Amino acid sequence: MWRHIASNAITFLVVLVFLLGGVVLWGQNEYTSEGPLTERICLQVKPGSNMRGVSRQLEDAGAISNGSIYRVGAEYSGKNSRLKAGSWLVPEGASMQEIVDIVTRGGASTCGTEVVYRIGVTRSEARVRELDPATDAYVERAEFDLAAEERPEIYAKVREEADTRYRIAIAEGVTSWQIVNALGQIDLLEGAADKLPPEGSLAPDSYEVSAGDTVAGVLERMDAEQDLRLAETWENRAEGIPLKDPYEALILASIIEKETGLPEERGQVASVFTNRLEQGMKLQTDPTVIYGVTEGKGVLGRGLRQSELRKRTDWNTYVIDGLPPTPIANPGRASLEAAVNPEDTDFIFFVADGTGGHAFARTLEEHNKNVAEWRKIEAERATE
């Protein structure tokens, strides 16, 4: 009798083990298999949230099939306590395992609301925008001038949200004064610049920032990035260029930056100035004259006067020989690369061609024809 009972008990345990094993395998498969989400979503994890609450959010959104399996998987993988607050983009078909990785990885939010502070040559502004998960495109919610005293209500609202991302976008060709002035208008940042950074020393780029970051700290990051870029481009410079050191390359790059906004033209513009330096010709470039007038503090807002073209300043390249003593703006990487690796051309002149680009010439005769054509275009536009 006891032998029969023992035999049945063993059989029951064996069956139970197999059943449990099957449940475990099923759970593992559910955890790692493609999920039911048909369209990507933006999952907001608020500070103080836990995996149980997140699993309910995911179930309600139709992103997971079983909240218990999700929580067990997160616990088993050791990630249950690593939940990060923020807004996280969950792609369609994401498995529970992939979602756990997304919400515990950390870093900047990958969706939700973003504030971009854009520092440009003629205007500095802030834009509040939100990622639409369905289209993977940002929708503009508000835009305002950084110099404006009043800010949109939505800006104040998103400033209170813990998962809002902030980014400062610096345009190529802005001056150090323009950057410092604009940073001082960003209420997210604290403090002020210790001093005005040298012209050309700040790298135009996009910088992630957070509430409490300092103006001085952001400037240090920009300075370090420009140092790195300048060192890299100088290391890879072409042989025989008429530049003595990286600083001269920085000066030339700033002139190239201000002379053309077309990426495909930078190498040609660089070749004109390189050829002029090699031939001992004056650079004769208007942006340097303008810098001598404004000292980089804002935009001139009008054409140059003949008296300004004749007046001697350290930056008037119609009067001085060679390069000016300092950069005239903060150049981007592409202009740095063009300065030390100019195209191989015979061009020594260029003038606007009416399309946003320039007409290049090898001789004064060719250049005069191009200038006449440009004057004709200017006259036609004046009558429109």
Rank of each mutant, 00 (worst) to 15 (best):
N368Q: 14
P246T: 06
L262R: 15
E149G: 11
E308I: 02
D101S: 14
Q306R: 14
A249F: 06
A238Y: 03
R159V: 09
V351L: 05
D145H: 09
S49R: 11
E232A: 15
I256F: 05
I119N: 04
R82A: 14
M222V: 04
E278T: 15
E30N: 06
G240W: 03
G78S: 00
R123Y: 10
S33F: 11
H367S: 06
A171Y: 14
S335R: 04
T294K: 05
R165K: 08
K258H: 10
E160G: 13
G298Q: 09
G240N: 10
L336Q: 05
A382Y: 01
L262C: 04
V340K: 05
I290H: 05
P263G: 03
E380Y: 03
L230V: 14
G357A: 08
A148Q: 12
E384K: 13
G22L: 11
P342Y: 02
A339H: 05
S65F: 00
E114Q: 15
C42L: 11
H367P: 07
R129P: 07
A339G: 11
T164M: 04
K157C: 00
A359I: 03
I168M: 00
R151P: 06
G267Q: 11
G93R: 05
A238H: 07
L252Q: 01
I241P: 04
T122I: 12
E208S: 14
L283N: 01
N236S: 15
T11I: 13
T113H: 10
N330P: 02
G86H: 03
P324I: 01
I256E: 06
L183I: 10
K282C: 02
G35F: 02
R71N: 08
I119C: 06
N8S: 11
S68C: 00
L189Q: 02
D187E: 14
D132W: 10
G67P: 00
E295N: 15
H367G: 04
A361I: 03
K258D: 10
A382L: 06
G93E: 09
E59W: 09
V24C: 09
I255Q: 09
G303A: 10
I5L: 14
S68A: 14
Y247P: 03
G62Q: 00
A126Y: 14
L262F: 07
A182F: 02
I41R: 06
E199L: 02
V158C: 11
M1W: 10
L20C: 13
E278W: 00
A249L: 04
E295F: 08
V128W: 10
E365V: 13
D321S: 08
D205G: 04
G48K: 03
L189F: 00
A6Y: 10
R52Y: 12
